[in-house]
Design a protein around this nucleic acid. Structure first.
Length: 297
DNA sequence: AGGTCGGCCTGGCAGC
DNA sequence: TGCTGCCAGGCCGACC
């Protein structure tokens, strides 16, 4: 499922294809994709506009169009954007035809795209102007992990007072943008933190380790061109390779790469979670009523 | 107000 | 074999 590295991979591959070209024709086959706009309304608003830039914020893909309009697309669980001729022809939700580009070769010559999405969770919405865009992301997304302001101090302050498990904290896009289930598991393993540890109990040193582990996991994901465990594909239909580098995710019953003990699966924050409980020590259960052993007398 | 849970949706797979 | 039912999960809204 597309998390930050997968969306960034798509963006890097698609930007040279779409930037500078016009959306000649956009056909929305699934009304859920454009809701609450009707397919026809979205089509009429974007057709004929030039794609000035393809950007990413968190797991969102931003089509910056001429006339100050932005198509904010989210692939959710199973969305993909493929260049035609597409290797996958089922579950097509949107067809996009681009204006012709003279002298282009290879992928950049592609003039037809399809958005496929088996589970139909993917969405798109239109935002007009910079203010609307800023407001949209201000209420949904925290800092990008690669942003220079994403410091240990920032993470430490964010976690203060939080009783939710650190994994739930990481998955909350309003705290940190772009981390999903895969990279949360991997980062917590690298930082040697148990996913159930209450976020507010992290020490400064642990925040420093977590910050570094999150950045490293996401960067490794980008370097491997994403992880393909379900439907994620590149724009040419090729799979990413980060799934081959998982240290804990989806490795239930297998030995830990560090200590050899068995990786266990549990549910944290409502998500399937993979842990080496020897490397990632479970938090001490806070039991306020536990009778204290008295000393003396 | 922070935290948790259910709904959205479909493919894949376990179990009969 | 074929059917049923359950599970996965990002995000959002409802609820406690």
């Amino acid at each position: 499922m597309p998390e930050l590295p997968e969306v960034e991979t798509i963006r890097r591959q698609l930007a040279p294809v779409v930037e500078g070209r016009r959306l000649k024709r956009v056909e929305v086959l699934d009304p859920r994709w454009s809701a609450p706009l009707l397919p026809q309304e979205l089509t009429e608003a974007v057709q004929g506009r030039r794609v000035q830039q393809l950007q990413r914020r968190g797991k969102y893909l931003l089509w910056r169009l001429s006339g100050d309009l932005t198509l904010v697309q989210h692939l959710r669980m199973s969305g993909a954007i493929l260049c035609e001729p597409a290797p996958e022809t089922r579950h097509v939700r949107v067809r996009i035809e681009l204006s012709r580009r003279r002298g282009a070769s290879g992928a950049a010559a592609c003039s037809r795209l399809v958005v496929t999405d088996p589970r139909r969770f993917g969405t798109a919405q239109l935002l007009f102007g910079e203010t609307a865009l800023e407001r949209f992301f201000a209420q949904r997304l925290g800092l990008e992990p690669f942003h220079p302001d994403f410091t240990t101090e920032h993470l430490w302050r964010l976690t203060r007072g939080r009783t939710a498990p650190v994994k739930a904290f990481l998955l909350d896009q309003r705290r940190v943008a772009g981390v999903g289930n895969i990279y949360a598991d991997e980062a917590l393993f690298t930082a040697k933190l148990h996913p159930r540890m209450p976020a507010g109990r992290l020490t400064r040193a642990q925040c420093a380790a977590l910050r570094e582990a999150v950045i490293d996991a996401l960067q490794a994901g980008i370097d491997a061109k994403g992880a393909s465990i379900e439907d994620f594909r590149h724009v040419d239909g090729v799979a990413g390779s980060f799934q081959d580098r998982f240290q804990v995710h989806l490795r239930e019953g297998e030995p830990c790469v560090v200590c050899g003990s068995e990786i266990v699966k549990m549910v944290v924050g409502g998500r399937g979670t993979y842990v080496c409980e020897r490397c990632q020590r479970p938090p001490r259960v806070a039991s306020p009523r536990q009778p204290r052993a008295r000393s003396g007398r």
